[in-house]
Design a protein around this nucleic acid. Sequence first.
DNA 1: TAAGAGAGTGAGAGTTAATTTTCATATGTC
DNA 2: GACATATGAAAATTAACTCTCACTCTCTTA
Lengths: 155, 155
Amino acid sequence: MPDKTDLKKVGLKTTVPRLKILSLLELSDQRHLTAEDVYRQLLDADEDIGLATVYRVLTQFEGAGLVIRHHFEGGSSVFELNEGKHHDHMVCIECGEVFEFFDSRIEDRQKQVGEESDFCIEDHSLYLYGVCGGMKKNGKCSKRQLKAENLKLKA
Amino acid sequence: MPDKTDLKKVGLKTTVPRLKILSLLELSDQRHLTAEDVYRQLLDADEDIGLATVYRVLTQFEGAGLVIRHHFEGGSSVFELNEGKHHDHMVCIECGEVFEFFDSRIEDRQKQVGEESDFCIEDHSLYLYGVCGGMKKNGKCSKRQLKAENLKLKA
DNA sequence: TAAGAGAGTGAGAGTTAATTTTCATATGTC
DNA sequence: GACATATGAAAATTAACTCTCACTCTCTTA
């Protein structure tokens, strides 16, 4: 459970919903959650927090720099705890698992490509899509089987 | 104007709307068009083609492999003629212009990163977001002023 | 520790924008 | 020309948020 000071520090009043949501972001085994995900997981945990509040709070957290909002392909925003270190993502198309990575050579080269085109790069998004080791071997991802099933249903 | 055989080849009946849309994709100075873009440009050219048809046809073209559908940040799908050569995109956050680039060093490195993580990469999407040269200098993009204004209004 | 002010909340209605469906009419193919 | 398919216009749907408002909670001050 996050400390009250976490919220105070960023100028947000300490409230139960905000603490629960922050806590969920910290403890959930998924790093990347949509507002809907957060809402459902709160429901599952018998927390009585409205969807509107989830959106409000996530947006406030984003403004406060506590979380980062991503726009994966497919419409809805995805939130992730901001731990200050930039990284890119590898997404397993079989099981839906998201892995993070950072590669300075790619980062550097991106900057160069921008400069060569007289383009001032402020941000980028890089997703590698493929099949993770677990799925290749076992048809099972060691890390997150359930998620995979969810994905299949959605798709 | 595309040849009738282009459509026949992929199993689509030759119709005026389909020819016009394919032609527009080939001739437009924008490589990346939303369905709305296509629709408006057809209107400008005094073609009487409904928006529903544009959506239908673009979706058929995608199914037939004639075009590729992208999901840039910001909601709507963007279509591009499929010419078989992979490339990545730089998107100007000021004017909305999309530039293409290809950098083999980035491509290679991506493959390596995948291998190092026992991840079999099948695809990737890389978008660089920044400010293009035109907008930096003039606050105007040489290539696409109108589009920029649309973007501002929407945002 | 109680009270008041003001910010925060839940539920549900409202919005928005993109896309899809419907259906009567028009068109392409054989 | 017959038949199936495609089309245009408008309505319907969808999904993701956002707003409204009556009520509740937190924080501060007494």
